[in-house]
């Protein structure tokens, strides 16, 4: 066991990938000499050289597109899009190409491409730099979407992604890189499509992923002080989605709260609410509750920005007002 930050866990994951598979190479903007905008790739360029840790121009479309091509040809590329906001310049390659080739070729072609990117707001970076598009990508059949909340999950999921033969959007929250956690020295994996109960409880189920897992846990802590026991489920992957874990928990607790950072009108929440309603309707004591980001672009002003991002008080308040708990 070692205590690592999420950043360190990912750095270890990348190092291990480069070590184990000669087909693995990294590319992205300033990931090499500069060490990565969020320092996740620090040291790799020195250790593995500029052939395998490739600095690219600011050209998102061809970064992803070339990743697709190399993957088609049998390599195992890992590309970094500096943030998910810039993935829009590569959205065509991601959605129209990477997600479609296997299907359109009748199963002949495979695109085992891992796209690492940074998601989320809260850093006062303004409207163009604070978005959470993983929910969008999770609506695309053919893609996998992963969003870890802890160093343990980040490393374990990363390994599972490398074994997967499809394109993965691996969304890392900008504010989670410093989060610490225990990581085993021995090899393990966290399978895709498997949610985890991060806290047991019997009165309600709070479903979240990425940074919102920590918000959910903090809210659960507050609620526990007055005897309300929440079960906190970390989805870990948005596609495939572990509906079963959520439904099983809701059947037990009879109440569901879905917390996510992205806009109220999108994201994974609406689909989850539908699935809960379809599969656990008779078990529900009330409507499924949603706590999501305000339906607004992210403002620069800090106070305004924070008011648009779910925090633990918002979750607690929703539980109080909607369930009377």
């Amino acid at each position: 066991m070692a205590e690592l930050t999420l950043r360190e866990a990912l750095n270890r994951a990348l190092k291990e990938a480069l070590e184990r598979d000669p087909g693995v190479f990294l590319m992205g903007e300033d990931i090499g000499a500069y060490g990565g905008a969020y320092a996740v790739t620090r040291g790799l360029w020195k250790q593995y050289g500029p052939e395998r840790v490739r600095d690219t121009p600011i050209s998102e479309a061809v970064i992803v597109g070339a990743g697709i091509g190399a993957a088609l040809a049998g390599m195992r590329p890992i590309v970094e899009l500096m943030t998910i906001n810039f993935s829009l310049l590569a959205a065509d390659q991601i959605v129209n190409t990477a997600a479609k080739l296997h299907y359109m070729s009748g199963g002949q072609l495979e695109v085992p491409l891992l796209i690492r990117t940074v998601t989320g707001g809260g850093g006062q970076l303004g409207a163009t730099h604070s978005q959470s598009f993983e929910g969008w990508y999770a609506t695309v059949p053919g893609l996998r979407v992963v969003a870890p909340a802890t160093p343990y999950d980040a490393l374990g999921l990363f390994r599972a992604c490398l074994k997967d033969r499809n394109t993965v959007i691996f969304a890392e929250h900008a504010l989670l890189y410093g989060v610490r956690g225990q990581v085993p020295d021995e090899y393990y994996e966290v399978p895709l499509g498997l949610a985890e109960v991060k806290r047991q409880g019997s009165h309600l189920t709070i479903v979240a992923y990425s940074r919102m897992v920590h918000i959910a846990l903090a809210a659960a802590e507050q609620l526990a002080r007055r005897g309300v026991e929440s079960e906190v489920i970390d989805l870990r992957t948005l596609r495939p989605l572990d509906t079963e874990a959520v439904v099983n928990s809701v059947r037990k607790t009879h109440r569901a709260v879905i917390v996510e950072e992205g806009w109220q009108s999108g994201g994974i929440g609406p689909l989850l609410a539908l699935l809960i309603q379809e599969q656990a309707f008779d078990h529900l004591d009330g409507p499924v509750v949603r706590v999501a980001g305000a339906d607004a672009p992210a403002p620069y002003n800090g106070r305004l920005e924070r008011s648009g991002i779910p925090n633990e008080d918002a979750v607690v308040k929703a539980v109080e007002s909607r369930f009377g708990l």
């Binding site: 303004g126 163009t128 403002p299 620069y300 002003n301």
Partner: peptide
């Protein structure tokens, strides 16, 4: 921008200053 744009997103319609754009290109 009433504090909502920030350093990277300055605008002034009256001056035909149509803005700072933070997505490269």
């Amino acid at each position: 921008s009433k504090g909502k744009g920030g350093s990277m997103h300055l605008f002034d319609r009256r001056l035909n200053f149509m803005g700072g754009y933070a997505i490269v290109g």
